[in-house]
Computed example of a mutant assay.
Amino acid sequence: MYKKLLAVFLVSFFILAGFSFIPTDINVDEIIVYTEEVTVNSEVFLQDTQNNSSDATIMEGVNTVLATIEALKDVVEQSPDESKEIIKRGKKLDEDWELIEKKVEDAYPEDYTNIEESLYPLIDAAQSEKPNNDVLKKLITEVNDKLFKFKEKISA
Protein backbone atom coordinates (compact mmCIF):
# COMPACT_ATOMS: atom_id res chain seq x y z
CA MET A 1 0.00 0.00 0.00
CA TYR A 2 2.76 2.42 0.99
CA LYS A 3 4.77 1.51 -2.08
CA LYS A 4 1.83 2.46 -4.27
CA LEU A 5 1.39 5.77 -2.49
CA LEU A 6 5.09 6.46 -2.79
CA ALA A 7 4.99 5.62 -6.50
CA VAL A 8 1.98 7.92 -7.01
CA PHE A 9 3.73 10.70 -5.10
CA LEU A 10 6.97 10.31 -7.04
CA VAL A 11 5.22 10.19 -10.40
CA SER A 12 3.20 13.26 -9.48
CA PHE A 13 6.31 15.06 -8.23
CA PHE A 14 8.31 14.37 -11.37
CA ILE A 15 5.44 15.30 -13.62
CA LEU A 16 4.90 18.55 -11.73
CA ALA A 17 8.63 19.29 -11.55
CA GLY A 18 9.02 18.65 -15.26
CA PHE A 19 6.11 20.88 -16.17
CA SER A 20 7.07 23.68 -13.80
CA PHE A 21 9.65 24.91 -16.33
CA ILE A 22 7.14 24.98 -19.16
CA PRO A 23 4.61 27.77 -19.07
CA THR A 24 1.27 25.96 -19.49
CA ASP A 25 -2.07 25.76 -17.77
CA ILE A 26 -2.03 22.43 -15.92
CA ASN A 27 -4.63 21.43 -13.43
CA VAL A 28 -2.87 19.50 -10.66
CA ASP A 29 -6.17 17.91 -9.58
CA GLU A 30 -6.51 16.23 -12.98
CA ILE A 31 -3.06 14.70 -12.69
CA ILE A 32 -3.77 13.29 -9.25
CA VAL A 33 -7.15 11.92 -10.34
CA TYR A 34 -5.54 10.35 -13.38
CA THR A 35 -2.85 8.72 -11.23
CA GLU A 36 -5.48 7.38 -8.82
CA GLU A 37 -7.44 5.94 -11.74
CA VAL A 38 -4.34 4.10 -12.94
CA THR A 39 -3.83 2.63 -9.47
CA VAL A 40 -7.46 1.52 -9.21
CA ASN A 41 -7.42 0.02 -12.70
CA SER A 42 -4.19 -1.89 -12.02
CA GLU A 43 -5.74 -3.37 -8.87
CA VAL A 44 -8.80 -4.46 -10.87
CA PHE A 45 -6.49 -5.96 -13.51
CA LEU A 46 -4.52 -7.81 -10.82
CA GLN A 47 -7.71 -9.18 -9.28
CA ASP A 48 -8.97 -10.28 -12.71
CA THR A 49 -5.63 -11.97 -13.42
CA GLN A 50 -5.84 -13.84 -10.13
CA ASN A 51 -9.38 -15.01 -10.94
CA ASN A 52 -8.25 -16.20 -14.36
CA SER A 53 -5.33 -18.01 -12.75
CA SER A 54 -7.73 -19.74 -10.38
CA ASP A 55 -9.95 -20.72 -13.33
CA ALA A 56 -6.88 -22.10 -15.11
CA THR A 57 -6.04 -24.19 -12.05
CA ILE A 58 -9.62 -25.42 -11.84
CA MET A 59 -9.64 -26.20 -15.57
CA GLU A 60 -6.43 -28.20 -15.24
CA GLY A 61 -7.88 -30.11 -12.29
CA VAL A 62 -11.13 -30.81 -14.14
CA ASN A 63 -9.12 -32.20 -17.06
CA THR A 64 -7.27 -34.49 -14.64
CA VAL A 65 -10.55 -35.68 -13.12
CA LEU A 66 -11.98 -36.31 -16.60
CA ALA A 67 -8.90 -38.34 -17.54
CA THR A 68 -9.27 -40.42 -14.39
CA ILE A 69 -12.96 -40.99 -15.14
CA GLU A 70 -12.04 -42.08 -18.66
CA ALA A 71 -9.54 -44.58 -17.23
CA LEU A 72 -12.24 -45.86 -14.85
CA LYS A 73 -14.68 -46.15 -17.76
CA ASP A 74 -12.13 -48.19 -19.76
CA VAL A 75 -11.69 -50.65 -16.88
CA VAL A 76 -15.45 -50.95 -16.33
CA GLU A 77 -16.08 -51.63 -20.02
CA GLN A 78 -13.06 -53.80 -20.84
CA SER A 79 -12.45 -55.63 -17.57
CA PRO A 80 -15.68 -55.49 -15.56
CA ASP A 81 -14.55 -58.28 -13.22
CA GLU A 82 -11.37 -56.42 -12.17
CA SER A 83 -12.74 -55.12 -8.86
CA LYS A 84 -9.29 -54.21 -7.54
CA GLU A 85 -8.54 -52.08 -10.58
CA ILE A 86 -11.95 -50.37 -10.39
CA ILE A 87 -11.41 -49.65 -6.69
CA LYS A 88 -7.93 -48.29 -7.47
CA ARG A 89 -9.40 -45.93 -10.10
CA GLY A 90 -12.14 -44.88 -7.66
CA LYS A 91 -9.52 -43.90 -5.08
CA LYS A 92 -7.56 -41.99 -7.72
CA LEU A 93 -10.73 -40.16 -8.74
CA ASP A 94 -11.36 -39.17 -5.13
CA GLU A 95 -7.77 -37.90 -4.77
CA ASP A 96 -7.90 -35.94 -8.03
CA TRP A 97 -11.18 -34.25 -7.16
CA GLU A 98 -9.96 -33.42 -3.67
CA LEU A 99 -7.17 -31.27 -5.18
CA ILE A 100 -9.64 -28.81 -6.74
CA GLU A 101 -12.74 -29.39 -4.66
CA LYS A 102 -12.35 -26.35 -2.39
CA LYS A 103 -11.52 -24.03 -5.31
CA VAL A 104 -14.59 -25.16 -7.22
CA GLU A 105 -16.77 -24.88 -4.12
CA ASP A 106 -15.57 -21.33 -3.39
CA ALA A 107 -15.66 -20.01 -6.96
CA TYR A 108 -18.70 -21.88 -8.33
CA PRO A 109 -20.91 -23.07 -5.45
CA GLU A 110 -23.92 -24.03 -7.60
CA ASP A 111 -21.81 -25.98 -10.08
CA TYR A 112 -19.99 -27.62 -7.20
CA THR A 113 -23.27 -28.87 -5.72
CA ASN A 114 -24.47 -30.08 -9.12
CA ILE A 115 -21.25 -31.99 -9.86
CA GLU A 116 -21.04 -33.56 -6.43
CA GLU A 117 -24.59 -34.91 -6.65
CA SER A 118 -23.22 -37.46 -9.14
CA LEU A 119 -19.50 -37.47 -8.39
CA TYR A 120 -19.62 -38.73 -4.82
CA PRO A 121 -22.01 -41.56 -5.65
CA LEU A 122 -19.59 -42.49 -8.48
CA ILE A 123 -16.61 -42.46 -6.11
CA ASP A 124 -18.53 -44.55 -3.57
CA ALA A 125 -19.71 -47.02 -6.21
CA ALA A 126 -16.20 -47.37 -7.65
CA GLN A 127 -14.72 -48.04 -4.21
CA SER A 128 -17.24 -50.64 -3.10
CA GLU A 129 -16.04 -54.23 -2.63
CA LYS A 130 -18.20 -55.46 -5.50
CA PRO A 131 -18.70 -52.55 -7.89
CA ASN A 132 -21.97 -52.56 -9.83
CA ASN A 133 -20.93 -51.91 -13.44
CA ASP A 134 -24.37 -50.75 -14.56
CA VAL A 135 -24.46 -48.13 -11.82
CA LEU A 136 -20.88 -47.11 -12.61
CA LYS A 137 -21.62 -46.66 -16.32
CA LYS A 138 -24.65 -44.48 -15.54
CA LEU A 139 -22.76 -42.32 -13.03
CA ILE A 140 -19.71 -42.01 -15.30
CA THR A 141 -21.94 -40.63 -18.05
CA GLU A 142 -23.63 -38.18 -15.65
CA VAL A 143 -20.38 -36.90 -14.17
CA ASN A 144 -18.73 -36.57 -17.59
CA ASP A 145 -21.67 -34.51 -18.87
CA LYS A 146 -21.62 -32.23 -15.83
CA LEU A 147 -17.86 -31.72 -15.95
CA PHE A 148 -17.85 -30.95 -19.68
CA LYS A 149 -20.62 -28.38 -19.19
CA PHE A 150 -18.70 -26.90 -16.29
CA LYS A 151 -15.55 -26.68 -18.43
CA GLU A 152 -17.49 -24.83 -21.12
CA LYS A 153 -18.79 -22.38 -18.53
CA ILE A 154 -15.43 -21.50 -17.02
CA SER A 155 -13.65 -21.29 -20.36
CA ALA A 156 -16.20 -18.82 -21.76
Rank of each mutant, 00 (worst) to 15 (best):
S118Y: 14
N114S: 14
V40W: 01
P121W: 11
L93I: 04
V76S: 03
V40Q: 07
D124T: 08
V76D: 03
V38C: 03
E60P: 02
N41T: 15
F45M: 14
E116P: 04
P109Y: 06
S53N: 14
S53Q: 14
T35S: 08
I123T: 07
Y120G: 06
D81M: 09
A107M: 14
V40N: 06
N114C: 02
L119V: 05
E37D: 09
D81V: 08
I123F: 01
P121H: 10
D74G: 00
T35C: 10
P80K: 06
D111K: 12
E30C: 05
D94G: 09
K102R: 10
Q50H: 06
E101Q: 14
I31K: 05
V62R: 02
E82M: 06
S79G: 04
L99F: 04
N41K: 15
S83H: 07
L46S: 09
D29C: 00
T39C: 05
E101I: 01
I123G: 02
Q47F: 06
Q50P: 03
D94V: 05
V76F: 02
W97H: 07
R89S: 02
D96C: 04
L119W: 04
E98N: 09
V40K: 13
A71K: 06
L66M: 08
S53Y: 10
D96R: 06
V40P: 01
I86M: 10
Q47R: 13
Y34N: 05
E101S: 14
K92M: 06
E85S: 11
Y34F: 12
G61L: 03
Y120D: 11
D96G: 04
E37M: 08
E95F: 07
F45H: 08
D81W: 03
V33C: 00
V62D: 03
D124F: 11
Q50C: 01
N41R: 13
D55S: 14
A67N: 15
E43K: 11
E95M: 06
Y120H: 10
I86N: 01
E105L: 14
I32T: 08
R89N: 04
D55W: 05
D74W: 01
D81L: 13
I87G: 00
D111S: 15
E37H: 08
